[in-house]
């Protein structure tokens, strides 16, 4: 048979395959480019960028758990100006779509970041990290309630013409609500999920391992949880979902596509095998060709056809979020959307 078509489209970004390198695990491509030809990727999502340079958190920053990894890196990055000057031109030369992950602590900061990147060469899209704390909301993360997600998405949408992806936090009561908030705010896609908040305790020293106590859990340990989040988000929105969470193998990636993701991103998997992204691309290709499936897009959400009513489906899922400005009532339609994640 003809070779399978792996191409997918996220917003205005045409990817030659559905596999991205996830933010924070791939730097700015420099390190992995020494190991393999990263132009084979579908897209690169950069390390999170902030307006000003950030030194990051004091060590320890890592803690291995059974099949998982807790991290507390603290957004160490050179700041947006240095990124545009030192990294963007080189990233552009790889010939792979570049999505810049941005983090801010206020709407104004997100907008300034997006404006700075609007004319930067080689930047194809933005991934908004709404998991960072909002200083105007007592440090509660933007991601923790749909209203904040809507506001930050809408604000960034007003200043960027680039593909806009909102990276959702799983540390909420219902991800369907924040996914819909992003969609209504004008996002082209949502990526889910960011890390799950966890804690490691050092029983020898009788104290938390991390200076900030909470850290983000990633890796295979979170895969079933992330699959559920992708399933729910994809059921709640019409925009594409980028599935993230413990993907290490082609099999993992295919499961995410079948659960409703239009593309996937590989994070912690890059640490296990630096060529994990390549292996996943080739594995998806083989899966399609062995089964005579024409295109990767044909896999998206395919598992849902076999789900019972309880698990939800595209058409009958109720709207769980409506922006305040569009309605008279102060509360959310179902109440499911609101939560207090307690993220720091």
């Amino acid at each position: 048979m003809a070779s399978a078509d792996l191409a997918v489209t996220i917003g205005a970004i045409k990817m030659k395959n559905p596999v991205m390198a996830a933010s924070g695990t791939f730097g700015f491509g420099r390190e992995f480019d020494r190991v393999f030809d990263i132009s084979a990727l579908g897209a690169i999502v950069t390390k999170g960028i902030t307006l000003k340079p950030r030194a990051g958190n004091p060590p320890p920053r890592l803690w291995e758990t059974p099949c998982g990894l807790l991290n507390s890196v603290g957004l160490q990055n050179p700041g947006v100006a240095a990124f545009i000057r030192d990294e963007a031109p080189r990233l552009a030369a790889y010939g792979v779509p570049v999505i810049v992950n941005i983090s801010g602590d206020s709407l104004a900061e997100f907008c300034e970041l997006a404006s700075c990147l609007e004319d930067a060469p080689g930047v194809d899209g933005l991934e908004v990290n709404v998991s960072c704390p909002n200083i105007h909301a007592g440090g509660r993360p933007f991601a923790s309630d749909p209203e904040s997600v809507y506001r930050v998405t809408a604000a960034v949408r007003r200043v960027t013409g680039k593909t806009l992806i909102v990276k959702l936090s799983p540390n909420v009561a219902g991800i369907a609500g924040t996914a819909q908030a992003a969609e209504m705010g004008g996002a082209d896609a949502v990526s889910c999920v960011n890390t799950y908040l966890g804690i490691a305790i050092d029983s020898e020293r009788i104290r938390p391992v991390f200076s900030r106590v909470f850290a983000g859990l990633s890796g295979p340990a979170i895969k079933p949880l992330a699959l559920r989040a992708v399933w729910e988000a994809a059921s709640a929105v019409r925009i594409p979902v980028v599935g993230i969470g413990g993907i290490c193998s082609p099999q993992d990636a295919i499961e995410f596509l079948l659960a409703g993701a239009s593309a996937v991103a590989i994070g912690t998997g890059n640490f296990i095998s630096p060529v994990a992204c390549l292996e996943v691309v080739e594995g998806i290709r083989s899966y399609l060709e062995e089964r005579g499936i024409r295109a990767a897009t044909d896999l998206v959400g395919l598992a849902k056809g076999h789900a019972g009513h309880a698990a939800g489906s595209h058409s009958d899922e109720a709207c769980v979020y409506e922006p305040k400005e569009r309605k008279a009532k102060d509360d959310f339609a179902t109440g499911k959307g609101r939560s207090h994640g307690g993220e720091q």
Partner: peptide, 17 residues
């Protein structure tokens, strides 16, 4: 020596001040 994830310099996990 340090706790290390990627080993390549990308993840910024093995930081030393």
């Amino acid at each position: 020596e340090a706790r290390m994830a990627c080993g390549l310099g990308a993840c910024l996990g093995c930081a030393v001040k």
